[in-house]
Amino acid sequence: MDDEVNAILETDNGFEKAALHVKLSDFFEEEAALSHIDRLICWKLGDLDVLTKIERSSYLGEPIQFDFQNKEIQHGKDTKRTIPILELADSVSS
């Protein structure tokens, strides 16, 4: 599996590496590594049943917790990382 960064974002805190997907669930179904990602960007969350199943079983051998209300993921055993989720469908108005 190749580590892939789809975008580099310039933020107030410097540059962040981001993964871009139409649906957040697609990222996890592809079993992409989280170790190199600072932020996940998606149009919508996608299949919440898939994400809940991943949360119950773990992701790539590490515990994971989805916090959809605060738009973030906590991942890892000893050193938990928090990865923000930017859901674009919520940000765009017609």
Rank of each mutant, 00 (worst) to 15 (best):
M1K: 09
D2G: 06
D2K: 12
D3P: 06
E4M: 02
E4D: 13
E4Q: 08
N6H: 15
A7K: 10
A7E: 02
L9K: 08
E10Y: 12
E10H: 05
T11Q: 07
D12C: 05
D12I: 10
G14W: 04
E16Q: 15
K17I: 11
A18Y: 06
A18I: 02
A19H: 01
L20D: 03
L20V: 12
L20N: 03
H21D: 13
H21K: 14
K23I: 00
K23N: 07
K23V: 03
K23R: 14
F27W: 05
F28R: 00
F28T: 00
E29F: 02
E30H: 14
E30L: 12
A33M: 09
A33P: 03
S35C: 08
S35A: 07
H36A: 12
H36Y: 07
I37A: 04
D38M: 03
R39V: 15
R39D: 06
R39L: 12
L40Q: 02
L40S: 10
I41Y: 04
C42I: 06
C42V: 11
W43T: 14
K44M: 08
L45M: 10
G46M: 01
D47E: 13
D47R: 01
L48C: 07
D49K: 15
D49S: 11
T52W: 03
K53C: 09
K53Q: 10
I54W: 04
S57V: 08
S58A: 11
Y59K: 00
G61F: 11
E62P: 12
I64C: 03
I64Q: 01
F66S: 00
D67C: 14
D67V: 06
F68T: 15
Q69T: 14
K71L: 12
K71R: 13
K71Q: 10
E72T: 08
E72I: 07
G76E: 06
K77F: 15
K77R: 14
T79Q: 11
K80T: 05
K80H: 01
R81E: 08
R81D: 13
T82V: 15
T82C: 10
T82F: 13
I83V: 10
P84N: 02
P84E: 03
I85P: 05
I85L: 05
L86F: 13
L86E: 05
L86V: 11
L86K: 08
E87N: 08
L88V: 03
S91N: 15
V92A: 06
S93G: 09
S94R: 14
S94Y: 15
S94C: 08
